[in-house]
Write a protein that binds this DNA or RNA. Structure first.
Lengths: 260, 260
DNA sequence: CGCAAGATTGAAACGTATCAAGTTGGGTGG
DNA sequence: CCACCCAACTTGATACGTTTCAATCTTGCG
């Protein structure tokens, strides 16, 4: 595949930032520690490892790997991919910073997906055995763990609802809408962002042909809803986009993500 | 809708059977208690309630109900249904005996689905607060709980893979295949069973028009793969069905379900 | 500059949804 | 017991959207 380390891509490694504990992490409230107190946070911090920077196309785990840790990106983006019996790849979810990666293995103790970096990234690693044993002692952490897992299931359901009985343009609008919301959640612009994934990845995720995604983007641009420059997306008419996605648009948009 | 209690449907209530604890339940190894020891089983048994028999079309919980308990059918069948922003129903999963119901609410503490009985049924109820507090003390139960939850997520993924990039006949074959396996798992015939759900439910679940499901059944019957008499399904040529579903068919079929 | 991968655009073929009749079977009431 | 009814299911004809195949265009990168 692609080289693990592209020469033109010097790693902007900020050790000081990497060493920060959960307590100082800007994602704290969006991540596993959300809602737990200072003492508990210290216990959690003790078991969280900081991995070396991850290169584009690098894998956190592969299919059939035993479940060891859960992962969370601090920055960058990942996709999780399952492979059908016929060898076709299916993207199960996209993961932005703060979103737990690795829950696919909870059932069998063995991963059924690969987690592949879409960009260079920095990742926290949480050994599951330690996490569960700490959680057994800290009811609030246990509760939060279940909540995070449950949210993951909710996202799978959102993904499913996006695929069933919705046609191409609706899926694409919903995808862009959700992505914008997720970027907003982590403090970036909901109206202008760079897609970390290819058209092919989007198509795969949405259950469409990549040509259909391309046509969809073009159509949205012609209609003045978005602007497209390669992977750079600008949302020009958010209400219109929401209408196409059939999403209500009250002031406070409910917590929602697209990729699980 | 249909009457809560049809006159022609006297409830064959077997109190002796209902009073059985998990320890004596035939589903024990397929259910929450799988793999935990006798002491732990006793602790679990203490918190499991047996609900009065549930009528066809009765709901275990509704959308927006707070999460109180998880449910498991001892017999009968359920569907869980979510409702989109436009008011369209989407069937998220079918639940046969031994399969946990109610995990949809883990994320927000509030149900995002309704659980509706497809048939008359007997149901065990497990209050979640008690379950988690017991699980915190019993590592094996904690582990088993996570495993069951993880399996639920796995099933959602199977459902998703069934919908994406597969065409109608393949989805239908896969659906029947999976249903057969699940019946086999609970000690019934994999080759002959009565569908607990309507064609409309199947179509909704598979993301198809109900006419397409009907045609699919007819086609499978014409090809000598199955026999259809209303809701009675016989599988005449299992290898052929598996081939249509693109499922490998080694001697030992992997643990798999269709509805999550 | 020039290649290769990714993205866009076009035309035709296919599969499924939709609309519209029929058909079957279980339940009800005369 | 039969006629009727209604809901569930089946079957047929047409319309639509998406896939597919193919060609062209763009972009990043060596």
């Amino acid at each position: 595949m692609a080289p693990w380390r592209a020469m033109s891509d010097p790693i902007p490694l900020d050790l000081a930032h990497l060493r920060k504990s959960c307590a100082h992490c800007s994602l704290q409230q969006l991540c596993l520690p959300a809602g737990i107190d200072a003492d508990e946070l210290r216990r959690l911090d003790e078991i969280v490892k900081l991995r070396r920077p991850t290169q584009r196309n690098e894998r956190l785990f592969r299919i059939a790997d035993p479940l060891v840790s859960l992962y969370i990106a601090r920055d960058g983006a990942f996709k999780t991919v399952s492979i059908s019996e016929q060898g076709e790849e299916q993207i199960v979810g996209f993961h932005l910073p703060g979103e737990l990666i690795g829950l696919d293995a909870l059932g069998q103790g063995v991963h059924r997906c690969e987690a592949i970096a879409l960009t260079n990234a920095n990742v926290c690693e949480v050994p599951l055995a330690q996490l569960t044993s700490v959680a057994a002692q800290l009811p609030r952490l246990q509760q939060q763990l279940l909540r995070v897992i449950g949210q993951g299931m909710g996202l799978d359901q959102d993904h499913l609802n996006m695929l069933v009985k919705r046609q191409a343009n609706e899926r694409i609008a919903l995808f862009l809408h959700g992505l914008g919301e997720r970027y907003q959640l982590i403090g970036q612009s909901a109206l202008q962002f760079k897609l970390p994934m290819s058209r092919e990845d989007i198509a795969n995720y949405l259950g469409l042909a990549l040509e259909t995604v391309s046509r969809g983007f073009t159509r949205l641009q012609e209609d003045g809803v978005i602007s497209v420059h390669g992977r750079l997306i600008g949302i020009s008419d958010r209400p219109h986009l929401n209408r196409l996605a059939h999403v209500e648009e009250p002031a406070a948009t409910p917590l929602r993500r697209i990729g699980g």
